[in-house]
Simulated scan of single mutants.
Amino acid sequence: MTEEQKQPETINQNLEVTISDTPADTFNAAPESIEKNSVESTVETVESIEVNLEPEKQFSEEQAEIFAAFQQENANLKNLLDEKSQQAELTKAQYARLAADFENFRRRTINEKEILEIQAKKNVITELLPVVDNFERARTQLKPETDGEKAIHTSYQGVYKTLVECLKKMGVSAMRPEGKEFDPNFHEAMLREQTDEYPEGTVMEQLMRGYVLGDTILRHAMVKVAVPKDPVITSEEKNTEEQENNG
């Protein structure tokens, strides 16, 4: 049996010896005597317990050393955890910046792709617009009379219709400026005509059709714009004006 296992038995024996050594008359004595004897007996018991607890006290010191070592290790682990947490936060911040940069790059790439697609469409469609113009001139100027001419006319107008449908699918739309106010962003004034039928600055006629691709202008519409007529000066007003100039 080890010293630690023997200690409770020793303590119990000491307590039994202390109690058994107490004379029976002590319990019948006066209260002061009983109290004095009890205190002395308790002191002796405590001293006996302290003597027997010396090995336990030494064992507790060893435990204290072990506990101190554990505390130091715990502090070291805590410092390591704080360091790793800081590294994790730094890595997280770097990842967030990289994710934001990648998102900006992705959006910029998509915008550039859309711009390139629109530019490519614009270049191709611009080359096809003169073909569309020729079909429209043929439709307005040619007047088929024979059955053969009518068949040819119907044939190339079918081609014209197919071409226009393809342009519409690509997002191309024709301008309809007649009767609208002149806008230099969409129109190009080729002629000016004095008239009282339209307000000043109104597009009277479209000489060459303009086209847009979405919000992109493929070609400005060439138009004729209304301007007010000059005031009519009568002979009397003219003579009066000449007299004022000579006077």
Rank of each mutant, 00 (worst) to 15 (best):
E44V: 09
R176E: 15
A100R: 06
Q58W: 09
E103K: 11
D147T: 15
L142P: 03
P130C: 00
Q87R: 15
T126R: 08
A64S: 12
S48Y: 01
S235F: 13
P130A: 07
A29Y: 06
N111S: 08
E193S: 12
A221C: 08
M170Y: 06
A93S: 12
G214I: 03
A189M: 05
K150A: 04
L213V: 07
L98C: 02
A75F: 01
T234W: 11
L167N: 02
V164G: 07
A120S: 06
Y156M: 03
A29P: 03
N245C: 08
E145F: 09
M190K: 12
I152R: 07
V39L: 08
V232M: 11
Q206D: 10
A226E: 01
E62D: 11
E54Y: 08
P23N: 06
F182H: 00
D215G: 04
F105R: 10
D215M: 00
Q157G: 08
E35W: 15
K238D: 13
Q5F: 09
Y95K: 13
P8I: 14
Y95H: 10
T91I: 14
V159N: 04
I118L: 12
I11N: 09
R209I: 02
A174T: 08
Q63D: 11
N37M: 11
A68V: 15
K150N: 12
E4Q: 13
T216H: 07
V131A: 07
G171S: 05
L167H: 04
T234G: 12
S48R: 08
F186A: 03
E181N: 05
V39G: 04
S173V: 14
T18E: 12
K122H: 00
L53K: 09
